[in-house]
């Protein structure tokens, strides 16, 4: 079953209600013209294709199934994605894949600032560059960047693997370059294949947590307090 929703004729609420009621099938959405929350909260194994650029929170809270956007996306693309696949052919602005728990987010173009902020298990593959403070406070999952990363990559990162093929403007606090082991090459192979992108896994560098912010260090408190503690 395939249905088309023209957002110049159908309301956003009507569209999302229909997508939430569906249990299977494919859906095409036309004329999104930057609308917010397009195909948010999908909870069934359906395939949604959007022709045109979307606004905020497209495919937010994505539970299962696939959403493909033939265009660009604004803030919060696939935020809190749990599983399934979200793909855009263009670029995404801020906070793509924020707090994602699982699933795969593919951005064929560039991602803006704070891509993968607080990611908790999602895999994100970006064909172009990512903006500043990407993977800020990342906790789990993989971020693969075929282009460059802007300043403060992985600031205050807990865990997660950040793979960057191009340059990194600067690493954030407690983020360090790490050895690429066989298991990481396997991860990269798997993710690049799933994303449909051709790149040599050996060309990527890996970054992750130095784990220096995990624990309290007595050296970090000032001398006066240290003296009081000593007494």
């Amino acid at each position: 079953m395939s249905s088309t929703f023209d957002l110049s004729e159908v309301s956003l609420r009507e569209l999302n209600r229909s997508l939430h009621e569906a249990s299977s099938g494919t859906f095409r959405i036309t004329n999104p013209r930057g609308a917010h929350a397009v195909a948010a909260g999908i909870d069934a194994d359906i395939a949604v294709e959007v022709d045109g650029s979307v606004g905020y929170y497209c495919a937010g809270m994505h539970q299962v199934g696939s959403v493909t956007v033939n265009g660009n996306a604004s803030t919060g693309l696939a935020e809190n994605i749990m599983s399934g696949t979200v793909r855009i052919t263009g670029s995404a602005t801020m906070s793509a894949g924020a707090t994602g728990n699982g699933g795969l987010l593919v951005i064929e173009g560039n991602a803006g600032a704070r891509c993968g902020i607080s990611m908790k298990g999602v895999d994100i593959v970006v064909g172009g560059n990512v903006g500043h403070m990407s993977a800020f406070m990342a906790q789990a999952g993989n971020l693969v960047v075929l282009g460059d990363a802007d300043a403060d990559l992985g600031d205050s990162i807990y865990e997660a693997n950040l793979f960057v093929r191009g340059s990194v403007a600067s690493l954030g606090t407690d983020c360090v370059e790490k050895e690429v082991r066989l298991e990481h090459i396997e991860t990269l192979k798997r993710l690049l294949e799933a994303a449909g992108m051709s790149a040599e896994p050996g060309d990527f560098k890996r970054y992750g947590s130095a784990r220096q912010l995990y624990n309290f260090h007595v050296d970090d408190i000032d001398a006066e307090v240290q003296q009081k503690v000593a007494k």
Binding site: G34, S74, M94, A113
Partner: peptide, 25 residues
């Protein structure tokens, strides 16, 4: 850059907005 901005340019105009939906018009 917490506050959003998007820019579009053609041969006739440059438009800037907080959100793309304004430019889409």
């Amino acid at each position: 850059a917490c506050k959003p901005a998007v820019v579009a340019e053609t041969q006739d105009w440059v438009a800037m907005s907080s959100e793309y939906r304004a430019i889409a018009q």
